[in-house]
Design a binder for these strands. Structure first.
Lengths: 130, 130
DNA sequence: CAGTATCCGGCCGGATACTG
DNA sequence: CAGTATCCGGCCGGATACTG
């Protein structure tokens, strides 16, 4: 859980000025969580290696860390099948699924405004150059 | 711009499996951006020190970095008044303001589900302990 | 298969001091 | 006031090798 301590500290230091969405951002948008949740939501229940391959550039160590975090937060469910070789399946939970509209909202904002951001960056860099 | 290279790299390596909300997450939810945008949205145009005090635990160096990033992305507007002493004002842009519904959505999700996350964590930790 | 163990580099953010 | 310059520690994530 990457930046959580930061938010928590800030919230406790200056409670009245705390950004109300701080804690939830740490839960939902910490690193690798969106591709993992997205993959689980799109392609359903998956094994460890499937997720690993689908995400592409994540290492097993980090994937394990993120999956544990998401499981602890209740956003995914891990099922262990005691077979040989072992089989483990991950699926999105109801709580995780409840994020779908939010993600859709974000995707909509992106498709509408991402090119505006791009243009802004371009203009800013052009001005800085001269 | 903190984790951007990561997302970009992943997207270019495995385009077909890329999480579509990756890039926008880096823009909107990179560190300190939500409290800055929130403060600017709630309290209107503010000077550097006002923001610094309101956010509470951020250092000037980091605040400058984040403000520059947000300005470059077009989410805020910086106005420099050439006086002595200098006066600089920051305000949220139309593009930044367009994030308000999204933030509201996030706040709603948080108020509905944050205690579920808390309970899940508690249960998980209790199980791990034994 | 589904991870764990170790090592390691880079980067980010904090602290501190200074400036036009 | 609104920053910049420097230094520095910690942490996170990647690479690699290994295991029940």
């Amino acid at each position: 859980m990457p930046t959580k301590p930061t938010w928590t500290a800030r919230a406790s230091n200056v409670p009245e000025e705390a950004c109300p969405i701080g804690p939830v951002v740490d839960i939902v948008f910490s690193r690798w969580t969106t591709p993992i949740l997205w993959s689980l939501h799109e392609h359903g229940r998956q094994r460890f290696v499937e997720l690993e391959r689908r995400i592409g550039t994540i290492t097993p160590k980090v994937l394990t860390q993120r999956l544990r975090q998401l499981e602890r937060d209740g956003l995914i469910v891990r099922t262990y099948h005691p077979e040989v070789p072992p089989r483990v399946e991950y699926e999105i939970s109801d709580l995780g699924r409840s994020l779908a509209p939010l993600f859709a909202h974000l995707a909509t904002w992106a498709s509408t405004n991402l090119d505006t951001v791009e243009r802004s960056r371009h203009d800013y860099d052009a001005k800085s150059a001269r």
